[in-house]
Design a protein around this nucleic acid. Structure first.
Length: 228
DNA sequence: GACCAGGCACATC
DNA sequence: GATGTGCATGGT
């Protein structure tokens, strides 16, 4: 199925945003006290529930490990122990260190300095870091570096394909372009829109998969995809 | 006790 | 290029 195009889809995307926003209110997404903490959360939440990530970040804070240099300096065993609640602790320990090494080597450990790089270059650069894929890069670009990038995740694909707006097999970049070409490039809008998708996904796709009480229920096609 | 979660890298075909 | 697999914990 081809994606729908034109102003009508733009209106639909704004309608979805209004429906979710009026249900949940402002999300103030992403949780985190600093750009670096946001980047750490983005890596730790890969294929993992946020509740588990919170525990790992609390461990890092308690052990005073929530800085690029302290993560690079500390013993592997200690980092593993801190990351354990978030799962995949061996993998994530390596990925976190790769990101920290990149940050220290190229920006003196400063997220602010990194955020000053132009968006297209920074995105390509982040994707070269081991353990940073498209979604993690875009989380960092939008929430930690304040760039107008639309973050796509499993919930985005699930919700918008279920509603017949995109093909369920659509690739990451195509789905990102679907939103970015139809919405104004507004950092606050993109932040809140993604947050609302996550909240909708958690509260309804998972807990109430029949969609009856979902804020988007009124727009759900009754018999499969209907928009072409 | 099975199943799932806001991915990613790597191997194989 | 597409598909399959390993990685690990905590909540439901």
């Amino acid at each position: 199925m081809a994606s729908t195009r034109g102003p009508s889809t733009t209106r639909i995307l704004h309608q979805y945003y209004r429906l979710m926003a009026s249900h949940f209110g402002p999300t103030l997404w992403w949780p985190g006290d600093s750009p670096f903490e946001i980047a750490v959360g983005a890596i730790l939440t890969q294929n993992t529930a946020w509740t588990n990530v919170e525990q790992a970040i609390a461990n890092l804070k308690r052990k005073k490990l929530l800085s690029p240099r302290s993560i690079l300096k500390c013993r592997t065993k200690e980092l593993h122990a801190a990351l354990k609640p978030s799962g995949y602790f061996r993998v994530k320990s390596d990925r976190l260190r790769s990101f920290c090494a990149h940050l220290v080597e190229n920006y003196g450990g400063s997220m602010v300095r990194m955020a000053k790089r132009p968006l297209p270059e920074l995105r390509v650069e982040l994707l070269t870091v081991h353990g940073i894929g498209p979604e993690t890069a875009d989380d960092i670009l939008l929430y930690a570096c304040e760039n107008p990038v639309f973050v796509v995740d499993a919930y985005t694909r699930r919700i918008f394909s279920r509603h017949g707006l995109v093909d369920p097999t659509i690739g990451y970049e195509s789905l990102r372009a679907f939103f970015e070409t139809r919405l104004e490039a507004d950092v606050a809008l993109f932040k809140d829109y993604h947050g609302l998708i996550v909240w909708t996904g958690k509260d309804f796709c998972r807990k109430n998969p029949k969609c009856e009480t979902c804020p988007l229920a009124s727009t759900l096609p009754k018999e499969g995809p209907r928009l072409s």
